[in-house]
């Protein structure tokens, strides 16, 4: 049954990384959309029929693009990882900042 132990060990790590990146990044993206709608105001947000929508907020738009940039950085990390592993390198998070190291 040693295989089950190894598999469970791998599984929870995949789950943790998956939740962080696979659910966290989409949530950030959703937050970006939310901020973008707050920034745009008007019909971008749900509001009672017949009245004018909420006013536009510049701050929302800025926050939205910051969030999108963060998500893009996450995706860039993913692509770097794919490319790096093809060339026998791997991403190390040992010093918090991701760096490329030999496998």
């Amino acid at each position: 049954m040693h295989n089950l132990g190894f598999a469970l060990e791998g599984a929870w790590q995949v789950l943790a990384a998956g939740l962080l990146l696979g659910a966290g990044l989409p949530a950030l993206f959703g937050l970006g959309i939310r901020a973008l709608a707050y920034g745009a105001g008007g019909d971008a947000e749900e509001h009672a029929a017949g009245v004018r929508g909420p006013a536009a907020h510049r701050l929302g738009t800025v926050a939205a693009w910051l969030l999108f940039a963060l998500v893009l950085a996450g995706v860039a990390l993913g692509i770097t990882f794919i490319v790096a592993s093809g060339f026998g390198k791997t991403l190390s998070f040992a010093h918090l900042v991701p760096t490329l190291v030999d496998k």
Binding site: G18, G22, A23, P26, A27, L31, I33, R34, A37, E45
Partner: peptide, 24 residues
């Protein structure tokens, strides 16, 4: 694992974007 991650992501997204117009 993938199902749990996707379910968490979906739930979060719908929570976060509640109140934003659907088309948007």
């Amino acid at each position: 694992i993938a199902g749990v991650v996707a379910a968490a992501g979906t739930w979060l997204i719908y929570r976060i974007t509640a109140g934003v117009a659907r088309r948007f």
